[in-house]
């Protein structure tokens, strides 16, 4: 099914197209990155710490200005028209960005207001999201009292309430317990089936292995390998190995080359 989907998606405008993206702080974080994510695809971005994953996604979200290169989200030039690009994008960082003194329902109302979602519709999806994420009993509690996992879920609900076409998540499952992680994974898969494109960075290789249609491996700010799990296996020259082995093998080759 996955292959069929991506075959179809090939003819559509890609969800995200990065070309020659470059960002230098004191050292180069993203080094001429080219990356294409198809519409409706679940894409996992892997890479060692400091590989440039978060920097890349922050540039896509409009939080950082790239030095060079282009960013297109569903055909919208994000550098020329950031507001239009943001309207269809959601960014969920690893540290949830919430207000301590708002409750989840108020937070979702605020987010919906920012994205200009039609109020009645926003309310309906807010209630659905809170119910699915089992936050409904806590809807009138202020976020300051929430555990990390609950905050992460509220932030996720906020990212989903405006129904983005492109959803980017930075380490969405770190620090979550198994039950919550499961809820989050199910929700993401459901969103993807409903047509949203999802990019997530993760350290948990098992997550990428099980959820992602395609996996990109990034090192030193460049894409060093990309493909389905099967394609990556071939690339690493190993059959029936786990993603972990492939990942280690590829990043090691990269380091040797550097």
């Amino acid at each position: 099914m996955t292959e069929l989907q991506s075959f179809d998606a090939g003819h559509q405008t890609p969800a995200l197209r990065l070309a020659g993206l470059r960002k230098t702080f004191t050292k180069t974080a993203v080094d001429g990155l080219d990356l294409t994510v198809k519409a409706g695809e679940f894409y996992a971005l892997l890479g060692p710490n400091g590989a440039g994953k978060t920097t890349t996604l922050r540039m896509v979200a409009g939080l950082l200005q790239p030095d060079e290169g282009s960013i297109e989200i569903f055909g919208v030039d994000a550098r020329r028209d950031p507001v239009a690009a943001k309207r269809i994008t959601a960014w969920l960082p690893d540290e949830p960005m919430l207000y301590d003194k708002l409750d989840p329902l108020e937070y979702l109302e605020f987010v919906a207001g920012l994205w200009g979602v039609e109020p009645a519709h926003a309310q309906k999806s807010a209630i659905e999201l809170l119910e699915v994420l089992e936050l409904w009993p806590h809807r009138h509690e202020l976020c300051e009292g929430f555990s990390r996992g609950m905050k992460q879920k509220v932030a996720l609900a906020g990212a989903l309430v405006h129904e983005p076409k492109l959803l980017m998540l930075d380490e969405p499952l770190t620090g979550l317990d198994a039950a919550i992680a499961r809820q989050v994974k199910d929700l993401l898969v459901a969103r993807c089936r409903a047509g949203a494109s999802i990019i997530l960075t993760t350290h948990i290789l098992e997550v990428a292995e099980r959820l992602a249609d395609r996996i990109g491996i990034i090192a030193n700010g460049r894409l060093i390998a990309e493909g389905t799990l099967g394609e990556l296996r071939e690339l690493a020259g190993q059959k029936n190995t786990s993603l972990e082995d492939i990942f280690l093998e590829l990043t090691r080759t990269m380091e040797r080359a550097a």
């Binding site: 109302e109 309310q123 509690e141 009292g145």
Partner: peptide, 26 residues
């Protein structure tokens, strides 16, 4: 976690989603 009493009636209240009022009320 704190539950604020006066907001019990919120259930019935509709979402309002005007950008200006969203930001102001926040």
């Amino acid at each position: 976690p704190k539950k604020v009493r006066e907001r019990r009636m919120r259930e019935a209240k509709r979402f309002r989603a005007n950008l200006g009022s969203s930001l102001r009320r926040k």
